[in-house]
Amino acid sequence: MAHIDYYFGTQSPWTYLAGARLEEIAARHGAEITYKPVDLLQLFDRTGGVRPANRHPSRLEYRDQELRRWSDLLGLPLNMRPAFWPVNAAPSAYAVIAAQKAGGGDLAGLVQSFVRAVWAEQLDIADDEVIRAKLSGAGFDPGLVNSGLFIGAQVYERNLEEAVEAGVFGAPFYIVRESNERFWGQDRLDFLDRHLAAL
């Protein structure tokens, strides 16, 4: 059975646009997924990337065009200027980590609900009440927002180190453990699908 390490940011528009396609691909090939939220800003700093706020205007303009194009193609509504942006992604990432450890709910749905909250619902994913509602909606104990804080912070930091060591430099990023094949971006999911079919 193949195993996919999935590195992402709960505030990333590209993670939002990935939707449920990763999970559909994994199910088709009987692959398992480990969800690894990372601090994207620190990841950019560590791997030669540029934080969005520091990018040249031409790059930001092109990013907007691409986001609009992909949103339209995939049929996923996207607010180009979210009400809560930039946002502290750490609290929602801690919740994902705690939920993965606890089990029993829809982890993929939880991840998707956080990115959808930012880009389609105009919600603040750093707000404890929003996080509780998302945990509950995905079938997890909303109390994880508090009880999962310590483990979440520890793993979040470790995920960043693992990401850097594994060659991750953006999000979403998918690594197939068995082959060490790496796929960066929601627009590379078809390649991941083809790779898993060939294993």
Rank of each mutant, 00 (worst) to 15 (best):
G109I: 09
T34V: 09
E32T: 15
N88Q: 07
G30V: 09
P57W: 00
I25E: 12
R55K: 14
A166V: 02
I151V: 15
G167S: 03
E165F: 07
F114Q: 13
F150R: 11
V87C: 14
S136Y: 06
P52G: 06
I4W: 01
D141R: 14
G9T: 07
P13R: 15
G48I: 15
L22G: 04
P86M: 13
V115G: 00
H195E: 12
G9F: 03
A198L: 12
L60V: 03
P37W: 03
A53V: 06
Y62P: 02
L41K: 04
W85P: 01
D64Y: 04
R194A: 14
H29V: 10
A27N: 08
A98C: 05
L192W: 10
L192G: 05
S58H: 13
G137A: 08
T15C: 10
D106W: 08
R63Y: 09
E157S: 11
A171G: 00
F140R: 13
H29S: 11
R81T: 14
E32M: 14
A83S: 13
Q65T: 08
R182A: 07
P37K: 02
R182Y: 02
R132M: 05
E181D: 11
G148R: 15
Q42Y: 03
Y156L: 09
G75M: 15
V168G: 01
A26E: 01
D128N: 15
L74N: 12
A20C: 02
V145W: 07
L67R: 07
A53M: 05
R177K: 14
D187G: 11
P142Y: 10
S136L: 10
E121Y: 10
V118D: 07
F191A: 10
N54K: 10
P172Y: 12
Q112N: 12
A27P: 03
G9H: 02
G139I: 11
G105W: 11
R51G: 01
L123C: 00
P172G: 08
L192I: 08
A53E: 14
T47D: 03
M1Q: 13
I97P: 00
P91K: 03
S92I: 10
G109N: 05
V87G: 07
G139K: 09
W85D: 06
S12D: 07
M1N: 11
A83G: 08
K36P: 00
K134H: 15
A26V: 12
R177H: 06
E165C: 06
G48Y: 15
Y174I: 00
D64F: 04
E129D: 14
L60R: 13
Q100K: 10
L123F: 01
M80H: 04
A53T: 04
E162W: 00
L135V: 10
L149V: 08
T15P: 00
F169E: 05
Y156R: 14
A99P: 11
I33S: 02
P91A: 05
P13Y: 13
A2N: 13
S179T: 15
L135D: 01
V115H: 06
S147H: 09
I131V: 14
Y94A: 05
E32W: 09
R188W: 07
L160G: 05
I125K: 08
